[in-house]
Simulated scan of single mutants.
Amino acid sequence: MDKLINGLHHITSFASSPQKNVDFYAGILGLRLVKKTVNFDAPDIYHLYYGNEMGAPGTILTFFPYDGIAKGRKGNGQVTVTSFSIPENSLEYWMRRLDKFNINYHKPVQHFNQESSVYFEDYDSMGIELVANNKDKRPGFSYGQIPQEYAVKGFYGITIAQSNAQATTAILTEEMEHKVIVEEGNRSRLASLDQPGGYVDIISDPKTPRGLGGGGIVHHVAFATPNDGTQLEFRERLLKKGYLQPTPVLDRQYFHSIYFREPGGVLFEVATNDIGFTIDEEKEQLGQELKLPEWEEPNRKRIEEGLVPVEVNIEKFRD
């Protein structure tokens, strides 16, 4: 029997300048721009997808970039840190690279006396962490500006901030097949898969203010489910819970999605693994052209005229 939830699928955030967003994630971090499309609910705005070579579930970070958006405030009721997995002996390399591009970072720390990590923020103050570990067997990706032995492999996990973690923990453990695997102080780590790409850390601190939406803030976190059948089975599980009120299944072209808001306020999505980004582009051409859902194709000229062109410029981000 398939697990209904098998790790993270993607994370979606708000940003400001589309080109600065591409420069940071494709240029500095070396993620592949695997899809350039629009927000299906607001098609005058880009939806940019980054990931590994194929944009595999568990590697996909996406953005809605709104030029001029006010910065949000990280706080309770939000995903406050998005953690990426990097090879075990690569932290020194990454700190030198961040120095080169004038990205401030905190000194390395260890959570739960485990892997070392370094925290920094993108141009919109979104919280990013690189976690050095030897448990991740996935291949890394870069456009060649970062040596393969240091390349980002995909997500390690996320950190959620709550004033009280009890209700969020209950949803994850009782409905979403997670287990608490380690606790330390006010931080607990849960996982549906005890490996990079499956970790959810929850920090409980009632003194932290409630977060506010805006630039640099995560809009939602998506968990992975194998296919339409497991998604519908999970949706029925939520409906039986009564108060979680999942949406109907929505067609996001590259996966199918349902959404619900967990009791602590974070918007959760459950997205299918079985479609992918090569449905409308060949592997070699991923992210090169603006892709629209078929219902927006009649509006292509107007949409393209309203979007500022963006490009992946690797030369200025080489070591």
Rank of each mutant, 00 (worst) to 15 (best):
S142K: 01
G75V: 07
G211E: 07
Q231K: 10
N76E: 07
G30H: 05
Y199Q: 11
E304N: 11
M126P: 13
Q231W: 00
A191I: 01
Y123T: 12
R210P: 00
N299G: 03
I60W: 03
S17E: 11
Q162D: 04
T62P: 09
G30W: 05
V221E: 01
P248Q: 13
Q285V: 13
I128V: 13
P108V: 02
E183T: 15
E269P: 11
V118T: 12
I181C: 10
L29G: 04
G157S: 01
Q110H: 04
S188E: 13
T278A: 08
E183L: 00
G7L: 09
A42Y: 12
R261L: 08
V38G: 00
G229F: 05
Q145R: 09
D124C: 12
I160Q: 04
G215F: 02
P43G: 02
L290E: 03
D67Y: 04
P108Y: 08
F260N: 03
A167Y: 04
L307T: 08
P226I: 03
R302H: 09
E88Q: 14
Y46L: 12
H220F: 10
L244Y: 06
Q110S: 15
S163H: 14
V118I: 14
L172S: 08
G157P: 05
D280V: 11
R318S: 13
E88T: 01
I171V: 13
Q78E: 12
N6W: 01
E284F: 02
T168F: 12
Q78V: 05
G140F: 00
Q288M: 14
G211Q: 05
I303V: 09
P139M: 10
I5G: 11
Y49F: 15
Q285T: 15
K153P: 10
P196V: 12
I45C: 03
A222M: 08
V308F: 00
L29K: 02
I86N: 01
P108F: 08
V152H: 04
D280Y: 04
A26P: 06
P293W: 03
S90I: 01
N113A: 09
Q166A: 15
R210M: 07
G77V: 09
N76Q: 05
E184Q: 15
Y50A: 06
P108W: 06
R96E: 12
D194F: 04
T230V: 02
G77L: 01
K3L: 14
I217L: 11
V270A: 08
K100Q: 15
R252L: 12
K36F: 00
L212Y: 05
T230R: 04
G264T: 10
M54E: 14
D99E: 13
P147G: 03
L212M: 12
P309A: 14
I158N: 07
R73P: 00
V79Q: 07
G265F: 00
H178V: 07
K74V: 13
E177R: 03
Y105S: 02
I202R: 04
E305Q: 15
I60P: 00
G58Q: 07
E281L: 10
S188H: 06
A42W: 13
R73N: 10
E294K: 14
A161K: 05
Y25T: 09
Q19P: 06
G276M: 05
E174T: 13
M95S: 00
S257L: 11
E315R: 06
P147Y: 00
A222G: 10
Q78L: 10
